[in-house]
Computed example of a mutant assay.
Amino acid sequence: MSDHLAGAYDLVVFDLDGVVFLIDKPIPGAGEAVERLRADGTAIAYATNNASRRGTDVAALLNGMGVSAAPAEVLTSAGATAALLAERLPAGSPVLVVGADALRDEVRDAGLTPVGTLEDEPVAVVQGYGPEVGWKNLAEAALAVRAGATWYATNTDRTLPSPRGPLPGNGSLVAVLRTALDREPDVVVGKPQPGLFTTAATLARAQRPLVVGDRLDTDIEGAVGAGMDSLLVLTGVSGPADLLAAPPERRPTFVSADLSGLFRPAEGAVVPAAGEQAGGWRVTRDGERATLDGAGGPVDALRLLCGVTWDGVAVSAIEGASQDARELLRAWGV
């Protein structure tokens, strides 16, 4: 039995934005966490829905931030989508690309022909995040889909984390076409689909992988779908209120404030916490209401409260009995 959470796993699959970095700055402790895992002999993989960079570019970015990474350890939704297109389409087929140059390059390297207009007669549209995507690109994509092209989305993340707060992600751009076309994409490749995680496990020959993410609707749901344990870190998009209200398919195995939770005892991170007390907090349930009392670390309170909200107590029916409890619930927006 390992004395820390990560010691029970032979592969740790990290999401990137909100877990390892925010836009272009590393999250404190990320580099140290990766190096400790490597020293322990634990395999590492990075799985990202962001289709604006190629695996080699992501690895270079990480290494420049002090987070060690090899290109083979990086799986992107752009690469996965291009590989799927290559499986389904004849070589050289025209594919209308809406996204960054990285997605266009992946499509080209997969043996297909990236194009930009309806007049190029695309047989498929592939849509991924790109900061330069505009109305003209979306208009051509809408016309192509209406003309019969199959619509692929690399992912449907509504937002991207940033130091200034959540920003529109590829899901927001997909929503523009969804509104214009009154339909869903034919294929969504990235998380929460489990493919990136299962591929990472296969490449590493892992028997017991752990997924680490910051989003319940992509990372955690994808891990649940893949049958893998998961750790939610509270450094990105999903916060305490989101976790309290999470449906079964979006509930992680563990939760921690940041990546340091990988190296603490698993029983202090498992969610929900067992019993009514943890780390100085106590939760009391009275029918359809629950009361939090005491004082301690926020994660312990969160773990306890998940035990009652996941068992039917509404998040709005939680009350704080102590001053610390009331302040914590207020900070969470509960």
Rank of each mutant, 00 (worst) to 15 (best):
Q127I: 04
N50T: 03
A47F: 04
G111V: 08
A141N: 01
L96A: 10
G134E: 14
G64Y: 04
V145E: 01
L143D: 04
V98M: 11
L138D: 02
G130H: 10
V126M: 08
V145D: 02
L118E: 09
V95L: 00
T113A: 13
A100L: 06
E73D: 05
L112T: 02
A141I: 01
V97G: 12
L118I: 03
G128A: 03
R53Q: 12
A80V: 11
V95P: 01
M65W: 03
E121F: 08
L84N: 05
I44P: 02
G79I: 10
V126L: 04
V58D: 12
N63R: 14
R146W: 00
P122D: 06
D40I: 02
T117Q: 03
L37K: 07
E73T: 05
M65S: 05
G134Y: 07
Q127W: 08
A51D: 03
T56V: 15
L103I: 03
I44K: 01
A82L: 11
T48M: 07
T150P: 01
G79A: 13
T76D: 11
G130K: 11
P71E: 14
S52M: 06
A59S: 15
V115N: 11
G134V: 09
V133R: 09
V95G: 01
T113H: 14
I44W: 02
A91Q: 13
P131S: 13
A51C: 05
A39I: 07
L84H: 14
G79L: 13
A70I: 06
D120N: 09
T150E: 00
W151Y: 02
E119H: 09
G99H: 07
N137F: 07
S93K: 06
W151C: 02
G55K: 11
A43P: 05
T56C: 10
N50E: 04
S77T: 13
L61I: 03
L118N: 00
V126G: 06
V126Y: 04
D109R: 14
S77V: 08
P71I: 12
G134D: 15
A124G: 08
A70H: 15
A43D: 13
G64S: 06
A78R: 10
S77H: 06
G92W: 01
A47D: 08
Y129T: 03
V107F: 01
A147Y: 00
L84Q: 15
G130L: 11
R88C: 04
D105F: 04
T113N: 15
Y46A: 09
L96V: 05
L84G: 05
R88D: 07
A78G: 15
A147F: 01
A142D: 07
A102V: 06
R146Y: 02
Q127C: 05
T48W: 02
E140R: 01
R38L: 14
T81Q: 04
P94F: 05
A142I: 05
D109Q: 14
A72G: 14
P131G: 09
G64C: 07
G116D: 09
A141E: 02
